[in-house]
Design a protein around this nucleic acid. Structure first.
Lengths: 233, 233
DNA sequence: GAGTGGTCTAGACCACTTT
DNA sequence: AAGTGGTCTAGACCACTCC
């Protein structure tokens, strides 16, 4: 075996979460119990748990236990919505409008998304902040992964909370590619600004616990009173 | 003592790097030697070293040793320049023009920068990629921290390499706030595009090993053939 | 072969949370 | 008081690098 022991412990726990043996918000067995069950030392179980915490898959709290990360509107925002206001505080936008349709996947969507879906849901939303439109989002997800999604509209503000609670799909990480653009007439009118207003356009790819690409999202942000925050390390 | 032992080991090592007892590129004492010297167990020294590696301050290589991170043009680019081309590959821009001046610090610069400098160096550069202008950067650093900087012009492509080698100032982390804008006539002509072209404007704050804010930078990126990549975790 | 970091163990004690 | 994770120790053996 070239694979370290703690890695197999890690993988075992990931599998159990993916299989809903351990559900979000619940407590994992203690380090001692996990170690005994998997026939490793407590230190080895601990190392696996620490890596799981660093990946954001579990959360550890001294005196309480280790818990499967529960996506809440708050932490979902914190991890996956990077706009800050002029004071550097996180922006909490409101949902204004939403449309959900099901349609055939475009060729590139089929090629990229998990399991090469023939059909996808397309969720289009406009969010506001301080009473003014702030961003336009077009989210595309594989239809087979989220049966009945359309019937749930209006969807909650934080999609990833729904994905986790209703579909056991836990979003762990995402990448965005940003470009600058000027708004065309259509988008400008939806965001209630003049055509030609500059905006940041973000192309997102989001991955779940099994490292499957389960979402493509195009967000268009106005940056007059907010900015997109990036931490470089 | 509320501070854990490994943290004081960590701080001791950071201090030694800041004081140039350990210089970039050189090997630290082994875990065993550090532990003996500081009267802790090997495991505790190890924990400090692992944290230093996660912060990017040292690099560990099995069989070889632990080394103080050396900023090279390559890794400096990798960590602090997030533009990707259409294939998702890192963009390596060339330097086109550069001006360095020394001037009085503006009020907000004096308030933000380390040690509230009265004078600052302002470095203005245009970078190209594939033969075309790609970005305009205005970098402001405290003059007292970088004596004689102006006389070194033309500065190397990667400023942080110079900061480290010539001034023992090791940049560890940075934050950027991004906005979208349309270029005014001046910037547009410098980047050889039409006025009104959309661009991403990034306001950077860079911090060194001692967590001092030592640089303010405003970068203006064209995003026609590149995009600004962000990893969300 | 000698020296380095990487993995793994077994045990101790501390700090925090809940009952 | 009991149970959790957090720190710390002391030791073993493995994998990799260099001479």
């Amino acid at each position: 075996m070239t694979e370290p022991l703690y890695r197999s412990v890690y993988n075992t726990i990931v599998k159990r979460i993916a299989d809903a043996d351990y559900v979000p918000g619940s407590m994992l067995p203690s380090e001692f119990d996990l170690a005994a069950e998997l026939s490793v030392s407590q230190g080895t179980a601990r190392k696996a748990l620490i890596e799981l915490e660093q990946k954001g898959i579990v959360q550890r709290r001294q005196g309480k236990g280790t818990f499967v990360t529960l996506r809440t509107p708050e932490n979902s925002l914190f991890h996956f919505f990077s706009l800050r206001d002029k004071n550097g505080d996180q922006v909490a936008p409101q949902l204004q409008t939403e449309t959900v349709i099901i349609r055939a996947a475009r060729k590139y969507e089929r090629a990229l998304l998990h399991d090469q879906p023939d059909k996808v849901f397309e969720i289009t939303r406009v969010r506001t902040f301080d009473g003014k439109p702030l961003c336009h989002e077009k989210t595309v997800v594989p239809a087979p992964l989220f049966p009945g999604l359309k019937d749930r509209s209006p969807l909650p503000n934080a999609l990833y909370v729904l994905f986790q609670q209703a579909y056991s799909c836990i979003i762990i990480s995402a990448e965005e590619n940003l470009k600058a653009a000027t708004l065309d007439a259509t988008l400008a009118s939806q965001l209630d600004v003049a055509p030609g207003t500059p905006a940041i356009v973000a192309q997102r790819r989001a991955f779940d616990l099994k490292e499957r690409l389960v979402e493509l999202r195009t967000s268009t942000f106005l940056t007059e009173s907010t900015s997109y925050f990036v931490d470089l390390n």
